[in-house]
């Protein structure tokens, strides 16, 4: 099962890369930059998926106190920070050439930045706690708090921007044609598979480290 999952993920990632860099035509408005979106959007989805896993597993850990849930929760928190960081970086690399700015106060960007900061805090709390058991409990609490807070942050930023000054530049104006949808779908699938494999491996590593 494990070699199969790793192999299938690697194959999906390669196909995704091929579709994104070779097969996909340049977009009429964004040009070649559309290719950045094939990393950016899947990474964002993976980040939110990882945060959801972290929140769910942490809640289960706090309820059941089964170490296995903590391993998954920790893996989810690390991957949420990793993928949201990647989302921010690729978002900037897309925004500079297409929008002309590195950063726009777009609701999705701000929400992702908040997610990134809260999960970095979650990991720091775990590492800096007085003892490992307390670290597990405290970081699980932060993971739950962070994930529940994110939707409220998102909508407040949406309203803060849109109700005051004209809607900010957003991806919504850019309609994606079918020839862009296929690479996007394959890459999204590949990144979610990558997320699953990394979650499983990270949790396994944590359980090995505890056994030792």
């Amino acid at each position: 099962m494990r070699p199969f999952a790793v192999g299938a993920t690697a194959a999906l990632l390669s196909v995704g890369l091929f579709l994104a860099l070779w097969v996909s035509p340049p977009d009429s408005y964004q040009g070649e930059y559309v290719r950045i979106l094939y990393v950016h959007v899947p990474a964002a989805l993976a980040a939110y998926g990882a945060a959801a896993v972290a929140c769910g597993a942490s809640a289960l850990y706090l309820w059941r106190r089964d170490l296995r849930w903590d391993f998954v929760g920790r893996a989810g928190a690390e991957l949420a920070a990793l993928f949201s960081g990647l989302t921010l970086l690729t978002g900037m690399l897309w925004g500079k050439p297409v929008w002309g700015v590195w950063w726009a106060w777009d609701a999705r960007l701000v929400t992702t930045a908040v997610l990134f900061l809260l999960y970095v805090g979650c990991l720091l709390v775990r590492d800096l706690a007085d003892d490992p058991e307390r670290g597990r409990r405290l970081s699980a609490a932060v993971a739950v708090l962070a994930f529940l807070d994110v939707p409220v942050v998102h909508y407040s930023v949406v309203w803060f921007r849109t109700l005051h000054q004209g809607p900010s530049i957003s991806l919504q104006g850019v309609k994606l044609a079918p020839e862009f949808l296929l690479p996007l779908a394959v890459n999204t699938l590949a990144y979610l598979a990558l997320l699953g494999v990394l979650l499983a491996e990270r949790a396994r590593l944590a359980s090995l480290e505890v056994e030792r």
Binding site: R35, H40, L93
Partner: peptide, 15 residues
């Protein structure tokens, strides 16, 4: 444009 694209994929690969 390709420099930007490669920078983005490089970031992903590095991270």
């Amino acid at each position: 444009p390709w420099a930007w694209v490669l920078a983005a994929y490089g970031c992903a690969a590095l991270l």
